[in-house]
C-alpha cells in the first residue's frame, strides 16, 4: 500500500473511533450540550476533560521521545497557535453560536451519523460561516 493511502486509512480509523466517542458521550445531541450550557448537567466537562487527558498523555510522551511519526516522517510536536485578537474575537462569536444552537463542528458530523438529518441546517450554516470568514480575510488582503 502506498504511504499516502496508509495515512488516509489511519486517519479514517481514528475518525471512526472519534465518532464513536462523540456518540457514546451523547455530544451528538444538541439538547445534552444545551443542558450543560444551562448548567443542568455538567457531563460535557467530563467529555472534554477525558479527551484532553488521554490526548495529553499521547502528545507529551511522543513529543518527549523526539521521534517522528512512522507514516509521514513528521516530528511529533504540540498544537501551537498564536494568541492574538482573532483567537479572542473568534471565541466570542463561536460561543454565541454554540449557546444558541448547542452544536459544534465535530459533534454536528457525528449527529448526522446517528440519523439526525435536521442537523444539516447547522452543517450548511457552518460551511456558509467558513465562507464568510474566508471572504472577509480575502478582502482584507490576507
Amino acid at each position: 500500500m502506498k504511504q499516502e493511502r496508509k495515512v488516509l486509512l489511519a486517519t479514517f480509523i481514528g475518525g471512526l473511533v472519534f465518532g464513536v466517542g462523540l456518540a457514546v458521550s451523547k455530544m451528538t445531541h444538541p439538547e445534552v450540550v444545551l443542558d450543560f450550557l444551562q448548567l443542568d448537567d455538567l457531563g460535557l466537562m467530563l467529555v472534554m476533560g477525558g479527551g484532553a487527558v488521554v490526548a495529553a498523555i499521547g502528545f507529551h510522551v511522543a513529543t518527549r521521545s523526539g521521534k517522528a511519526a512512522p507514516l509521514t516522517g513528521k516530528k511529533y510536536g504540540l498544537r501551537k497557535r498564536d494568541l492574538d485578537k482573532d483567537v479572542m474575537v473568534g471565541g466570542v462569536i463561536f460561543g454565541i453560536g454554540w449557546g444558541i444552537s448547542g452544536i459544534c463542528p465535530g459533534a454536528a458530523f457525528a449527529s448526522l451519523g446517528i440519523g439526525n438529518y435536521v442537523i444539516i441546517w447547522a452543517i450548511v450554516g457552518m460551511i456558509f460561516g467558513a465562507h464568510i470568514h474566508g471572504f472577509v480575510k480575502e478582502s482584507q488582503g490576507n
Binding site: 463561536f94 453560536g97 454554540w98 452544536i103 447547522a122 450548511v124 457552518m126 456558509f128
Partner: peptide, 8 residues
C-alpha cells in the same frame, strides 16, 4: 448558530 460557529 451554525453560521456563527463557522465564522467563530
Amino acid at each position: 448558530g451554525g453560521v456563527l460557529v463557522g465564522v467563530g
